[in-house]
Design a protein around this nucleic acid. Structure first.
Lengths: 229, 229
DNA sequence: ACCTGAACACCGTTCAAGT
DNA sequence: ACCTGAACACCGTTCAAGT
């Protein structure tokens, strides 16, 4: 009986084999192209040319799928940055990377704070923490400092995602913001003097600039902790 | 023909008449008692002893219902505060009120950033803005300062809501946080030196205290803007 | 082991019929 | 005008049957 030599090991599986990675990529494609409501297991199965039940062999349920899709998108954004000269520049780059990722994938903004154990959150926190250490913040103050930066970044991400979701396609961002402001003040404008004043300045408003201004405010606060009295 | 005097105007409608306010209160009751998944139009109708279709005469759809419920809960928390002596104390009180409201109604945390036009967001922003003005921040810097505080508060609210949702009932908060941290570092602990260091300090960790520490960091940063060079 | 796709147990939402 | 509740068009998820 002939012993047939096995064919050279074919490490790569069939290109069309199902895997969690392929499923997540397909989910991201649907979410980006057609929005959150369009992501159904039926649509996903059609997109992957398989049965809807097959997906459950690789993903526990829809929550896990959404979390994995958001995580993939954010991790990609957070690890893109090149090495930066200063801790401040590194934090800016990291923060802007996340800002832009949420801008490009609004559906991921809401997910970011829904599944905090995901790797994206851990990586961001670690990166921020290392830069906080590099700033020379005393060890006892590092936890609070890094947590504040993380919370701020996640908070802005969530708000931007909400704005993107609600903003009618093709609307100018500042037009949308002033509509939101006038909804707030409507009925009783005298009760909202600050919002009225701020809305008047909306003409030259830039979300990205303001986002970084907030980061710098926190960094300035952190700097006051460096040399305690 | 006798002209009958109309009965004295009965301004108050039948106590059991349906109204948006009653629907929203019932929704809050269900959300608090049984969680987000339990809020269905069928359950709500049963709770109100009416047909599920009747609700649509007062509320456009489920999104509006959830937004209104969250708004009601947050507005209540944000307007509870007594007058405070200093702007810092006022901001602390406002922030803690929201923190505790999310703690008591975790489902509202995620909603907070989903519908930014709601009145809660406007009131919080206005209150923060007025305190920022009271701090003596120059007018050109007030918008950024108030926005940073708002984003931070919303960010923490969202993270806390996520933690509350995910934390198995009866688990200690710090135990949960260290489990999250070990998920982050698992596989490659050497890659996460900051998180490992910080996890070791988790013993005497207090979420509320850390929340206020972040507020104070931003306030300290704002203070550096008061006297520009 | 993995995939298929019909079937199940729900949902949000609509709407003819009632009052 | 408001309410009723059955009906509709979907959904996530399961599972017997296939390969």
């Amino acid at each position: 009986m002939l012993v047939m030599t096995k064919p050279v090991q074919r490490i790569e599986r069939r290109t069309d084999a199902l895997s969690k990675a392929r499923i997540v990529e397909a989910a991201i494609a649907i979410l980006d192209a057609e929005g959150e409501d369009a992501l159904t297991f039926r649509a996903l199965a059609a997109h992957l040319a398989t049965g809807s039940g097959a997906i459950y062999h690789h993903v526990a349920d829809k929550d896990e799928l959404l979390a994995a899709a958001a995580d993939a998108v954010i991790v990609r954004a957070a690890s893109e940055g090149e090495p930066e000269a200063t801790p401040r520049a590194a934090i800016h780059a990291l923060a802007l990377g996340i800002f832009d990722a949420i801008d490009a994938h609004a559906w991921a903004g809401a997910q970011l704070s829904r599944a905090p154990w995901q790797s994206a959150m851990g990586r961001i926190f670690e990166s921020i923490g290392q830069q906080v250490q590099a700033l020379g913040v005393p060890e006892g103050a590092q936890f609070d400092a890094a947590s504040a930066l993380l919370a701020y970044i996640v908070g802005v991400a969530g708000q931007n995602a909400a704005n993107a979701r609600l903003m009618p396609a093709g609307t100018d961002r500042n037009t949308f913001l002033s509509e939101v402001a006038s909804r707030w003040t409507q009925g009783d404008p005298g009760r909202y003097p600050f919002i009225r004043q701020v809305t008047a300045q909306l003409g030259d408003h830039d979300d990205r600039r303001q986002f970084l201004a907030g980061i710098d405010l926190i960094l300035a606060g952190i700097a006051t902790r460096r040399s305690a009295p």
